[in-house]
């Protein structure tokens, strides 16, 4: 037993710093110290951001108080794309470096991305009702976000339909990258289609924002981004532990079979 553990130490010594950081066991060790600070930063950012959003920001002269919905809508719209980016980078990690930590990162990011995208759509439609007069508009941005949500949900469904998670990771990585290549095309086609059929809808993006709106918006952007990072790291730790437990259970089953 001692021999094998020293063997792992030996292999660890041979690895470069990146492989060391990304080794699942090592990841569990060093990420442990990140969870608490990240949680505290997230809570602080949300406290400051929400305080600004509700008590220290004026109503917009064009949109009125509904501008406050923007403070949760825009960060989630940003995260819906950022999470896909993180997933695509992890997919490259899975395919090029064959790294288990990239598999785990990809798998944990999918439900988070779906949740942020759903929030972006929900808040967008509640923002749209008072400003556009309708909950749903076939506007380029909203439609593209809806398609993105379908892509996330499809990826989650695919993760669930594979038993062998190692095989799943490689195949899903291929699909994630195919999706990443297609996202700009989808965005372009939907925008193009929308301008073809446009009646006249006001896009909130065209409105110049005063700094009093920028401050809460940026704080909230950071707050939600840190929420994502925190949940992602905790989720990755959990997924590594789950795989460990699965492997151990399989091992003990095999041993029992041999004995029986």
């Amino acid at each position: 037993m001692k021999k094998s553990s020293s063997a792992t130490e030996q292999t660890l010594k041979k690895m470069n710093w990146f492989d060391k950081l990304a080794h699942p066991g090592q990841f569990l060790k060093w990420s442990k110290y990140l969870v608490l600070p990240l949680t505290i930063i997230t809570i602080l950012l949300f406290t400051i951001g929400l305080w600004f959003a509700f008590f220290n920001s004026p109503e917009d002269y064009q949109m009125g108080d509904t501008v406050r919905i923007m403070y949760v809508h825009v960060p989630n719209a940003w995260l819906s794309q950022f999470t896909y980016m993180a997933m695509a980078v992890s997919a490259i990690g899975t395919l090029v470096w064959r790294h288990p930590i990239a598999d785990v990162s990809m798998k944990v990011a999918a439900p988070l991305g779906a949740a942020f995208t759903a929030i972006a759509l929900f808040t967008g439609s509640l923002w749209g009702r008072p400003t556009w007069g309708t909950f749903w508009e076939w506007d380029g941005r909203m439609t593209a976000t809806l398609i993105l949500l379908f892509m996330y949900l499809g990826l989650i469904a695919l993760w669930k339909s594979f038993d062998d998670q190692l095989r799943a990771a490689k195949l899903i990585a291929v699909l994630t990258l195919v999706g990443a290549v297609n996202i700009p095309i989808i965005k372009f086609s939907v925008d193009w289609w929308n301008t073809l059929h446009q009646s006249s809808s006001i896009s909130p993006s065209g409105i110049a924002m005063p700094p009093s709106i920028y401050i809460p918006l940026f704080v909230m952007m950071f707050a939600f981004t840190f929420l994502f990072i925190t949940l992602h790291i905790v989720g990755m730790r959990t997924e590594i532990l789950r795989r460990k437990a699965d492997a151990l259970e399989r091992k003990s089953l095999n041993q029992n079979e041999k004995r029986g």
């Binding site: 699909l175 195919v178 989808i186 086609s189 193009w192």
Partner: peptide, 15 residues
């Protein structure tokens, strides 16, 4: 599952 995965990225073709 395959149609569900492919449908979203096929929307530009339809458009």
């Amino acid at each position: 599952i395959a149609p569900v995965l492919i449908l979203p990225i096929s929307i530009p073709i339809l458009i």
